[in-house]
Design a protein around this nucleic acid. Structure first.
Lengths: 208, 208
DNA sequence: GGTTACATGTAACTAGTTACATGATTAG
DNA sequence: CTAATCATGTAACTAGTTACATGTAACC
């Protein structure tokens, strides 16, 4: 899932690792929590698989191939402007590749649907098409509906020896899940109404 | 965290591995999801560390040391009664030990507080004392309050380029977290009012 | 000139998962 | 007799984490 976060973030703009972590934390708040120990290896993997590439590295390589027309001084000035107020120390700036964009769309479409992956997918789902978005929301809805049924079954199964805390937990979980579903329904309706072309082929939703 | 689930479950009654998994699924519903691949190794670890012990094993060892007075036939009959309608094939029935009960209380008291651990702890918190329960709830409350602040900060930080989906996700997260906090407040109040002896030494809660 | 923040990376560990291997017992 | 369920266990893999190691640049 960290690869989804990285690719979704690089799709907006080129960034280096450290910056990526800061930005992810800033935009995703508590639903990200990326550590360097997983970030850098992930960037390495993505680079080796061709999903991202380094466009600027620590003080040496040039982002755009130099045509040889710049003197040493001009090059230094240009580098100084490019790198902003802080300058590149030994950092590697990454950019997403076309292969990476494909991978991003594939990750957004994959059916795994725990709380964390769903949140991440929703956070970056603007990079996939409306149909894929509706599919994502519907899939999540189905997962929650199943969860709801299971929790209710668990509540029913033990009417007798009701533990105070466990019971309250499950009732609260039921409420939360119902609210989540209502929220998803709203998102789905909004999504559907904002693209009146592709009919609801996936699920055959409610007819008005 | 699987050890907490196992110990909490064995505290109620002796059980064998397979039964443990079924029971956990039944009572915890979607908030458990224990697989055999983690259950059996965990039972092994707990046994080696003396937190649980085998009280009855597959067809051979006797739960209570035989005094030698039983004939082969009588022993078989007794075994048949002990094992109920299905009989022990090659199964190992586990029981929690005093050391295991201490470990259970320690696990309930440990400060890690992600969604999953909190749910599990609440599910089994009846095995610890009222003070520990209030401490658990207060700790969770603090975690959620922090999450709330962080999410709000993230929403504020990006007023400008608001992504539809990410924004909705965060607003919904804010609502959910607020409701979770209100629920915790209710639990805390109930817990406090049900034991009027030990005053709120931990946090110095609101004075009436 | 020392502290803080920037920047990248590796190693060991954590807490699980799925898939595999094995076999007993029971219901139809 | 054969399929389903009960029952235990291992091996390989997953997706991260924390702690360590290293070094640069900015700030005061």
């Amino acid at each position: 899932m960290i690869e989804l976060a990285i690719l979704g973030c690089l799709k907006e703009s080129t960034r280096h690792g450290y910056e990526l972590k800061k930005h992810l934390r800033e935009i995703l708040g508590p639903l990200s929590r990326v550590s360097f120990g997983s970030l850098y290896p992930a960037l390495g993997r993505l680079e080796r698989s061709g999903a991202v590439r380094v466009v600027e590295a620590g003080g040496m390589s040039s982002p755009i191939p130099m045509t040889g027309s710049l003197t040493g001084e001009a090059a230094a000035f240009r580098r100084a402007r490019l790198r902003g107020p802080r300058g590149p120390r030994n950092r590697k700036v990454y950019s997403i590749t076309p292969a990476g964009e494909e991978r991003l769309v594939a990750l957004l479409a994959d059916p795994s649907d725990d709380d964390r992956s769903f949140s991440l997918k929703l956070a970056f789902c603007r990079w996939s098409d409306p149909d894929a978005r509706v599919a994502l929301l519907e899939r999540r809805r189905a997962t929650l509906e199943q969860r709801l049924a299971e929790t209710r079954r668990a509540i029913e199964a033990r009417r007798a020896r009701v533990d105070r805390y466990l019971h309250s937990l499950m009732e609260h979980d039921t409420d939360s899940t119902q609210r989540d579903i209502a929220w998803l329904d709203h998102l789905i309706a909004t999504e559907r109404s904002s693209h009146r072309n592709t009919r609801d082929a996936t699920t055959g939703g409610p007819r008005p």
